[in-house]
């Protein structure tokens, strides 16, 4: 069975370590916060200037001066810090954030990612995505393996305008956990009940399959 959005987030959360500073993008990445193991402390970085993002506020605690990068009202946890946008991207570009999780339209076997623009549709802007992929050493991309028509988004070469070139190493889809190295995707894990053949069929890129591929465990 293909993973649900929440299961993808759960699998990503297994990559988190106690004491990590983490930046989560919009969509599935946001859900990862719900699955951080209870015995671990994680500080969420929001690129508009908050380290230590908490849950949504109540009617009583809502504050227009406290939002996340998705412009949602949030709270700050104990030990949080506020700072400017320049400081925020110093953290990001300088490689101080331990893990970045973001979505994508396409990724390719060179580690390039396209996530901000579809030609012919309205271009809203890249926001902080280009800085995030350029700065972070440890990035996990969460995305669907193929579109509704079964056309693969795991490609030899991205067709859409890039967010970053040669910067992505790990991808988790509803079907598979893959690592990009030496110009190919390497299949690390498959979703429970999904066969290697099914993954192969929806992967346009070169896919290296070494031995028995284990199922993800939850």
């Amino acid at each position: 069975m293909a993973l649900t959005r929440d299961q993808i987030a759960m699998r990503v959360a297994q990559e988190i370590q106690d004491g990590y500073y983490v930046n989560l993008g919009i969509g599935i990445p946001t859900l990862v916060a719900n699955y951080v193991p209870k015995d671990m402390d994680v500080m969420l970085q929001s690129e508009n200037g908050l380290l230590g993002m908490g849950e949504f506020p109540t009617e009583e605690t809502i504050d227009p001066d406290l939002i996340n990068a998705g412009k949602q009202t949030v709270t700050a946890v104990t030990g949080a810090a506020y700072f400017s946008s320049a400081e925020s991207f110093a953290m990001i570009r300088g490689g101080h954030v331990d893990l970045t999780v973001l979505g994508a339209f396409e990724v390719d076997q060179e580690g390039s990612i396209a996530s901000w623009m579809i030609p012919g549709k309205l271009v809203k802007g890249m926001g902080g995505a280009m800085d995030l992929v350029a700065g972070a050493e440890n990035i996990i991309v969460t995305m669907t393996h193929a579109n509704k028509h079964g056309v693969s988004k795991i490609l030899k070469k991205c067709s859409l305008p890039l967010t970053g070139a040669n910067c992505i190493k790990r991808v988790i889809t509803e079907l598979a956990f893959m690592e990009i190295k030496d110009g190919a995707f390497h299949l690390l894990e498959r979703a429970p009940g999904v066969s290697v053949e099914e993954i192969q069929a929806l992967t346009e890129a070169d896919l290296v399959i070494n031995g028995d591929i284990p199922e993800m465990k939850f």
Binding site: F89, R93, M126, G128, M130, D131, A134, G135, L162, G164
Partner: peptide, 28 residues
Amino acid sequence: PQGTLAEKIRAGGAGIPAFFTATGYGTQ
């Protein structure tokens, strides 16, 4: 890019005319 925008403004105010960043390399 948001971080480049922030740094362009920071640099402008600090008398730095330009800077190198990895952000956006290989993109439009």
